[in-house]
Design a protein around this nucleic acid. Structure first.
Lengths: 150, 150
DNA sequence: AAAAACCCTGTAGTCGCTCCGGGGTCAAGC
DNA sequence: GCTTGACCCCGGAGCGACTACAGGGTTTTT
């Protein structure tokens, strides 16, 4: 199996596969006589595993750790739970700030009175007002939040 | 006003202020005799505006465009609406995939049967099963989504 | 035999910062 | 007067997870 087929089979871009190899997630593959990478079912499964974890938005570092657990089935399972729990709380925190963000944007959007020019634009007005520290449609009062990232 | 005070007043890190200048969001400030950057109320407002927009998760490119609208109050306001609409739909799309993600992770977490070793770990089992393309707790069937980023 | 499709390596770019090294400047305390 | 510490300067590197490109080689199709 060449890299293109592997990519097709797993839904991972070829460049990304090579990137994963460089990043140490995928062990260096064997090579054909012409230097092309050569893969078997083991690597396919491993890459699918990685892709699946990425779909769960895990970091490559976390995925590496999970792969280690797969390799050493005697290891303590509690660490896996912990890893997943962390992931969940990260996602929840992000979700919370995203919801607040959506609300803010929606309020801001509603400020548009369809004025023709920017000078009369409610949106712009509010953003500028916010810059002055005044209350605006999207932010109640003065905000000092650093909530966005996490 | 020196850069440190400006940073304090706006809640923006000093390094970030310099970065914004380099990135062209803040015009190069005046300088004191010793070479220190010197700011007045105009720049303070501009930086507050930027910070506020960043809190709404806008890209620096979009913020630049908004700043242009602020500078040219005769411009057509429709473009602003469009920009905000785009932002909203980006946030909503992200929100949607985040919600799905949370569900998946929660299901996955529930698979833990508190087995002591990784070999019996329901989470790991499911992730490996997913790699095989089988159904698993967190993903119904085979997924091919690229939904995560956008 | 030529063109298209695939493969290789290595490097640079993306975004929005953040950190670092190596220096200069300034006010306060001893 | 001299040190200490806080602030400021600049340029460049690093982060994560890719993505794109340049400049080559190989294989498959036409």
């Amino acid at each position: 199996m060449r890299i293109g087929e592997l990519g097709q089979a797993t839904g991972v871009d070829v460049e990304t596969v090579r990137y994963y190899e460089k990043a140490g997630l995928l062990p260096p593959s064997g090579r054909q006589a012409n230097g092309y990478r050569s893969y078997g079912p083991v690597q396919l499964e491993r890459l699918s595993f990685i892709r699946h974890c990425r779909a769960l938005d895990m970091t490559l570092a976390d995925i590496k750790r999970l792969l280690n657990f797969v390799a050493r089935p005697k290891a303590n399972c509690g660490d896996i739970d912990h890893l997943i729990d962390d992931q969940i709380s990260r996602v929840r925190a992000r979700l919370k700030s995203m919801r607040a963000l959506e609300k803010q944007l929606t309020k801001l959007r509603a400020r548009c009175r369809a004025g023709r020019v920017a000078a009369e634009c409610g949106i712009l007005h509010d953003l500028v007002a916010a810059a002055h520290g005044e209350a605006c449609a999207c932010h109640g009062g003065r905000s000092k939040n650093k909530s966005r990232g996490e």
